[in-house]
Simulated assay, not measured.
Amino acid sequence: MFDLNLPPWLICSLLYVALVIAFGIFWPYIFQCQLIYSSWYPPGSRTKIAKPSDFGINYTEEVLTTKDGIKLRCYVITLDDIIEAKQAATILYFHAGTGNMGDRLPLVKVFNQKLGANVVMLSYRGYGFSEGKADEKGLRLDSQTLLDFVKEHDILQHTNLVAFGHALGGAVAIDLVSRNNSDFAGLILENTFLSIPKVISNIAPWLSYLTLLWHQKWPSETSIQNIINLPVLFISGAKDELVPIAHMKKLYQLCGSRQDRCWVEFATGSHNDTCLVPGYFDAIDDFVKGKILISQHWVHGGFMLDLLQVERLDSSSSSLQDTSDLYHRLLQHGPVEEQQLALEQLYDDETLYLTD
């Protein structure tokens, strides 16, 4: 019908241009999982995975099976003393999109041996020695599998659970906690993003026109609004070159938790080295011990105000402080703030004891 009588070389050229344009438009859709879940980088990340014992950490390695039949590797690191382990917090550590869980062991050693926490590390599907290929749906199943395992663990089921996520791991942690609020005592987020399309638009603005092709979403800006009744710590490196600090600030504003939201900003921290900035571990330690472990004396296992004891230093006997007024103010202020009020009212010659 349309006989243009084009020469063969021109037809080939037009076809070539059309293919290049089509590839330029659709390559984000085809290859986005390889870009987001960079388990192949740095080279050797699928074949060389450090073990906790390489860093002097006692651990067990578990193989977990997800609901869709994928076998995952995970490191379980508990305090050596069982009683201390049950009284400590347990950090479910979700790492960023590159490398493997072994790369984060220097951090985990500090969490375990310096801050006194149990730590569980997950190797997502398609990472390290875990089976399968990574995608958003799969990682959601992986994180839920880890939580279900921890809730059945002989020791860890008795502890306060804290989800910790860095970058992509932050999106995984937000999603998991938003679906399992009642199972967690806290959440820690470091340099994570509002959503995949929005962070991609920041990294490569020209791709913002193709955001409809991104089937990997991780809509943390929506999920975080479903996180309520637990404290959340936001750790942000002001010089993050991949995730603008505005993402973290917006997540902080959107967080639906009615309890404490804590913001810690490190002026010199970038995307991957915020953990090296002085004060990083202090911020985490203060959050865990000040917002989670202290509050467990008030709410863990039921109402425990009747166990608040004041021992007078000038007397060998102990007496129970009247709890009726504390009870009414606790209902008004909440456990952490009420504990601070109680401390402020003690006389100089009295020492506060919270007993299990």
Rank of each mutant, 00 (worst) to 15 (best):
311 E>K: 11
304 M>K: 08
318 S>W: 00
327 Y>C: 02
319 S>P: 00
324 S>N: 09
312 R>I: 11
302 G>A: 09
307 L>P: 00
335 P>R: 05
326 L>Q: 02
304 M>W: 04
313 L>C: 07
328 H>A: 12
335 P>M: 07
314 D>Y: 07
326 L>T: 11
333 H>Y: 12
325 D>Q: 12
303 F>L: 03
321 Q>M: 09
325 D>M: 15
337 E>K: 02
316 S>W: 14
310 V>S: 12
341 L>V: 13
319 S>C: 05
312 R>K: 14
315 S>E: 13
323 T>A: 13
312 R>H: 15
321 Q>L: 12
325 D>E: 12
312 R>S: 11
328 H>W: 09
336 V>N: 04
326 L>H: 01
337 E>V: 04
312 R>G: 13
323 T>S: 07
311 E>S: 05
342 A>K: 04
317 S>P: 02
306 D>G: 14
310 V>H: 06
342 A>G: 06
304 M>L: 14
306 D>L: 11
329 R>N: 10
318 S>H: 00
313 L>K: 12
307 L>C: 09
303 F>Q: 00
338 E>N: 15
333 H>C: 08
324 S>M: 09
341 L>T: 04
317 S>D: 09
327 Y>D: 00
339 Q>F: 01
315 S>Y: 14
303 F>K: 00
330 L>F: 11
304 M>V: 08
302 G>N: 11
326 L>I: 14
309 Q>N: 00
333 H>G: 04
305 L>W: 02
305 L>Q: 05
312 R>M: 10
336 V>S: 02
323 T>R: 04
310 V>P: 03
332 Q>F: 02
311 E>W: 07
332 Q>E: 09
325 D>L: 13
335 P>G: 03
312 R>W: 08
312 R>T: 09
333 H>I: 03
319 S>T: 13
311 E>D: 05
331 L>V: 15
323 T>Q: 02
325 D>H: 12
310 V>C: 10
335 P>D: 08
321 Q>I: 13
302 G>D: 14
340 Q>H: 11
336 V>F: 03
332 Q>R: 15
326 L>A: 14
313 L>W: 04
302 G>E: 08
303 F>G: 05
330 L>R: 00
342 A>V: 11
305 L>A: 00
336 V>R: 05
310 V>R: 09
317 S>F: 06
320 L>V: 08
314 D>I: 03
319 S>G: 14
321 Q>C: 10
308 L>M: 01
332 Q>P: 01
311 E>N: 04
342 A>N: 12
